[in-house]
Amino acid sequence: MNIELKEIVFLCVAIMTILPCFIVAFSRNILHSAFALFFTFLGTAGLYFFLDADFLAVVQVIIYIGGVLVLLLFAILLTRNIEDIKTTNSLSIKHSVLAGIVSLIIIGGLLYSYISNRWVFPLRENPDYPYFTIKELGDLLLTKYLLPFEVVSILLLAVLIGSLVIANRSVR
């Protein structure tokens, strides 16, 4: 087997994605768990780069790291009932069985879609794959997939208005 630089970088990214997951699952400190997700998300963005989905990779960083995870940290830091943050993350057998079943279903689904589709990896070797994904994505979103795009934007608008209503009620 010929190990090239690309494979070494890939291994580093994969390790960076997987190792923090153990901290997420087993750390007693919920803040450490939340923060370990940071590296997992960053590694996932790296994996997207390896799959030639450059736009998706950067959007992953902007949305998951810049938005979702910051909100998660805020929620933890501003929660009033957490007295000692260092021992907040309890482990229970019931939850871990449930989580195991869910993750098995997800792995099965991913494997099934991989086997049934026969995609050419890396995508660059597929002649139909565009060199710059962002331009094609923009075209597709405003032509072929316009309806789903608009439906999602209406959903986001509804969420925005709903959150404003809830926030306004709590002030009174």
């Binding site: 940071f38 450059d54 736009f55 950067v58 959007v59 902007i62 810049g66 910051v70 830091l77 962002i134």
Partner: peptide
């Protein structure tokens, strides 16, 4: 020479916020 350089810069500026939150806590 990334073709999404501008988005990359915005992504990196959101990473900096973690240093700030975590140092504070």
């Amino acid at each position: 020479d990334l073709n999404i350089g501008l988005l990359f810069l915005l992504a990196m500026s959101s990473l900096g916020a973690y240093g700030i939150i975590l140092s504070g806590w």
